[in-house]
Amino acid sequence: MDRLNDILNIVLGIHVDISWFLILSALMMFIGIYGFLTRRNTLAILISVELMLNAADINFAAFNRLLFPNGQEGYIFTLFSIAISAAETAIAIAVMINIYRNLKNNFVGNLDKLKW
């Protein structure tokens, strides 16, 4: 990371600081939210949610590396959150397979038995 920073600094004259990571993670977060609201396939919705969770993970890692390098709190949190989101995805996909068995497709428009 530090060497990469040096190379970027020398070759392109840019300095990568915390704001770069924050902009990246904010972009990922809002792309995720947009995808969650607009996608019509449940699996695509799931991928959008993964983007949101990963945006938070980038934040944790970047804050720990650049702002609070004395501890490991952010890294540990990232590890746990990756494990938890894997568990969530596993069970969400199990539910979606169950829906697929019943309906033969996976589009949210067909999840209309429970309304109002």
Partner: peptide
């Protein structure tokens, strides 16, 4: 199943 999908998402 539908209820579970809505809940988990």
């Amino acid at each position: 199943a539908e209820a579970a999908a809505k809940y988990i998402l």
